[in-house]
Structure formats: C-alpha cells, structure tokens
Nucleic acid binder design. Structure first.
Lengths: 159, 159
DNA sequence: TCTTATCTGATAGTTTTTTTCATTTAGTTT
DNA sequence: AAACTAAATGAAAAAAACTATCAGATAAGA
C-alpha cells in the first residue's frame, strides 16, 4: 500500500504535480477499492470519510489527473456514469470485463486475450494499437438458471 | 433503402409499435448516415431538416426504442455522449472500432475477430455471451507520421 | 362515429460533470 | 523569515445530456 502510494507520488512529481492530502486520500480510496469500479460520486463519499473537507470538484479533478497519467483507467459500462479502476501494476494493457445483462454485476478477465488479434489488426488495418477495451455482455454464472432466453436481454443497457 | 425502412416497419409492428412519420424520418437519417456514429443531438438536427416540427424528446424516445429492438446499437467512445449506429443486417454480433487517439476518427472493423476467444470465455468463465464491445485505441494510418510516441497519448480521452 | 391507447412536443426536472473564482497552500526567492 | 509566485482547493454556478411529465394530437379498432 505505502509502496504504491509512493510510486504514484513519484509519477505525479515527474509531471510537476504534488501529492496533496486530498489527492493522497483519493488515491488511497482507489487502492482500497481496487475491485470495485467506483464512480466519481462513490469515490467522493468514501474520501469524505477520511477527509471530510474535500470538495466534489477536487475529486473530479484528481480522477482526471490520475487518468491522464494512466494511474487509473476510466470505464464506461453504459449506465451513464464514468467509473474508475486502478491500473494493474506494470500492466501493458487493460484487462477485460464481463457484464451480466441480468444482474448488472461486472466480473474481470485478468488475462489479455487479444494479443494475437492485435497483431492481425495492426497489420491489416495499419493501426498502431496503444490500448483496447473489451467487454462481453451476457449472462453470468450466477444468473444462468434464472434467465430463460438470453437473446431477450439484448436491448438492455448495453452501450 | 425503402426495403430497409419497410423491414424496420415490420420489426416495429411485430412489437405493436407504429412507424410514425417522426420515427420514419429518424430511421431514414440513421440509414443515410450509417457510417457516422451520430449522437442524439446530431440525429435531432438532421431529422429537423426533414421534419422541422419534431421534438428532441421524440428523437431520444425513438433511439431508445430502436435500440431496444436491436435495430441500432448504442455506442460510447468516452466523450460523454451516447452514439448510435445501425446494426448490420443480420449481424449476430457487434463489429469493432478503431479509435484514433490523435485525430479522434473512428474506423470500423466489420469482421468478427472474437469468435474463437468467445468460445474460451464461455467455457472458462461460465459466462453466456450475448454480445460484445471491442475498441482499439491507438494511431490510425492517417496519423502515423505525425505522432512520434504513441505511448504519450495513453491518457487521452479513453474510457 | 366514438372510444381507447399510442404517440408527440414543449417544458421542467435530473443527473453528471465542468467551469469559475476567490481563497488557501506550498514552494522559491530575496 | 517575509514576500512572491504558481499550483491547488472548495463552493457554487453553469453546462451538457438525458428523462419525466402532461396536455393535446393522432391513429386504430369497435
């Protein structure tokens, strides 16, 4: 934990930004909730517990900053809110997500399944890939029994 | 064109919806701009040219309806606006997008590259896939010469 | 024609995010 | 250490995108 906070502190100062108390509190919340896909509002409420004087605008600003530095990733699951997640340490690429159309739960695929495909795309489409986003929409293992016809769910909340 | 409008008319009436003049104008705009990834506002302005009396709310309602019926797809490229695109006729799955971090242009990959990967995911993660979203972020062929270090672009507008 | 349900436009309201601006903080220079 | 400067913050207003409400229009069926 302390190591990661320190690492981020260095990333910030490398770009002439300071790790202010507000930023540190925000970073800590993000690290503590690494699995959670928090919205800005979620982060705000959690940070308030440690640093009650913080303003929502600062949280937004900090999230934007951390995202610019690729410390965190912005996510969009189609519910009208931007969500944030820690970038796995040293991860070259973003991992993948499984979104259940029935219960809304988001699971993770931590391995990178796209490497062979990316090679093809780079060549065939002359596109130099920096990152990717891959999301599967469907029925998670927990909802398998409940959902009769998955096709029926197609229109639901997919962006 | 007429064939496609008619086809949609049937899809609508199959679910007890009518192809009203407003809906038809909206559908035609979407077909005419199939490549364009229009936002609701974009669609509104274009529809206004044919049917000046239409209201923004109706456009939103129509887009939502067409999306529910899987006539169109909702897209999100991380700029805070939902975009819409026609679903390729008879396409089982969504196609893929190439987003240039330099110029913002969005190109299409019309073939489905994910079939083999989906088989693995379905088995290994017990997840029944209905649809997917795959976006590659990087440097398009047009910007290749302009951009020195693609890594520098990482933080830009990616969701 | 009458009835009923659907659909629409205008507008008000929400929600999420961004901007503004005066104040505070922290580092730097004298 | 005082003065200076730039960065950062909180509060609040504003913007942007979307959603809900509601009275009136439209259209399909009895």
């Amino acid at each position: 934990m302390e190591k990661r906070v320190n690492q981020i502190k260095q990333q910030l100062s490398a770009h002439n930004y300071k790790l202010t108390p507000q930023r540190e509190a925000t970073v800590r919340v993000l690290i503590e909730n690494e699995e959670a896909h928090l919205s800005a509002e979620d982060v705000y409420l959690l940070v308030k517990e440690k640093a009650p004087e913080i303003g929502l605008a600062t949280v937004y600003r900090t999230l934007e900053l951390l995202s610019d530095l690729s410390v965190i990733h912005k996510l969009n699951f189609g519910d009208g809110v931007t969500r944030y997640e820690f970038r796995a340490e040293g991860a070259e690429h973003h991992h993948h997500h499984l979104i259940c159309l029935n219960c809304g739960e988001v699971d993770e695929i931590m391995e990178d399944l796209l490497t062979p495909i990316e090679a093809r795309v780079e060549e065939e489409y002359e596109f130099q890939i920096v990152d990717h986003r891959l999301t599967f929409h469907g029925v998670c293992r927990r909802c398998k029994e409940v959902v009769a016809d998955p096709k029926k769910l197609v229109g639901a909340r997919v962006t």
